[in-house]
């Protein structure tokens, strides 16, 4: 009887936590559902009662501003994502593989961008570029400044998986004559790729949609967030809602695909159970 009671207690707590997760998803996605809904409505300030139109979508493809903004955001996202992932992967491997008495200090160095607010990163790189280097706003400084945060997040994500990594696998590969690079490609990367991919994804998203860092580094170059920021004064354009809706459609198609792959067990994304 007691065993039965304990089991149902566990079950009860499990369901309670599941409900908490469900409510969080609803909270997180309600505004996104609103954005998607509003992108189809004629008047986004008073979108009720519904009167639907595709006008916003037509405008997106006709107005070059949105295209430029999207391309710039993609450039910053991909550039910063690749840069962050490369730096962080190398750093995590360097720190975990080789013992160093400065290890703790170096961990702190790589995590330190997490302790600096985006606003400060943006403003300090603006001040540094403009006053010390004499550079005006350009996309490369925006990529670099966004990657500061990306490096820290990537470092955290890759570190949290690599601490469990068994380096003896690498040693074994090297005993059989594999060079370090080959060993990385054929032994390490296949095991840790979900976290490397996750790190890229997170640093991509952060940079793609970053307002505060990009805004101060770019000057007049438009990105999606800066266009949104600029248009706030006159009320948000429904075109921005339409772009967000299309982005979400793409993301959720990918997620659905991932779900199918996980369900059928074709790709496990790093999960080691059955």
């Amino acid at each position: 009887m007691t065993t039965y009671g304990a089991v149902s207690g566990v079950e009860y707590r499990k369901w309670l936590m599941a409900v908490a997760l469900g409510l969080l998803y609803i909270f997180l996605y309600a505004p996104i559902a609103y954005v998607i809904y509003a992108s189809f409505s004629e008047d986004i300030v008073w979108p009720f009662p519904p009167s639907l139109t595709l006008q916003a979508y037509a405008n997106v493809f006709n107005d070059s501003l949105y295209g430029d903004a999207l391309i710039n955001s993609l450039k910053i996202g991909v550039g910063s994502g690749v840069l962050s992932t490369l730096i962080a992967t190398a750093a995590v491997i360097g720190l975990l593989r080789y013992p160093s008495r400065y290890r703790t200090a170096l961990f702190i160095v790589f995590l330190s961008p997490l302790f600096v607010a985006e606003l400060l990163i943006g403003i300090s790189s603006l001040a540094f570029n403009a006053r010390i280097l004499g550079l005006s706003g350009n996309i490369f400084s925006a990529i670099a400044a966004n990657a500061v945060e990306g490096v820290a997040f990537s470092f955290l994500i890759i570190l949290s998986q690599l601490v469990r990594y068994d380096w003896q696998m690498d040693d074994a590969a090297m005993v059989f004559g594999a060079k370090p690079l080959r060993c990385f490609w054929e032994v390490t990367l296949p095991t840790i790729w979900p976290s490397v991919f996750g790190a890229f994804l997170i640093s991509f998203i952060l940079a793609f949609n970053n307002l505060e860092i990009s805004f101060y580094n770019l000057g007049a170059i438009p990105t999606l967030p800066s266009v949104a920021w600029g248009s706030l004064r006159f009320g948000l354009g429904p075109e921005l809602f339409a772009i967000a809706a299309m982005t979400n459609a793409l993301v959720f198609t990918i997620f659905a695909l991932m779900y199918v792959l996980m369900r059928t067990g074709i790709v496990k994304f790093g999960y080691r159970g059955t």
Binding site: P31, N209, Y259
Partner: peptide, 28 residues
Amino acid sequence: RYRLLLVLLLAAPFFTGVILRIAALQGI
């Protein structure tokens, strides 16, 4: 096995810019 997907679902709202989400929150 769905752990990664459940976590990614938490990250996905970031694909929509902060300003748009704040504007939508305001709308709600």
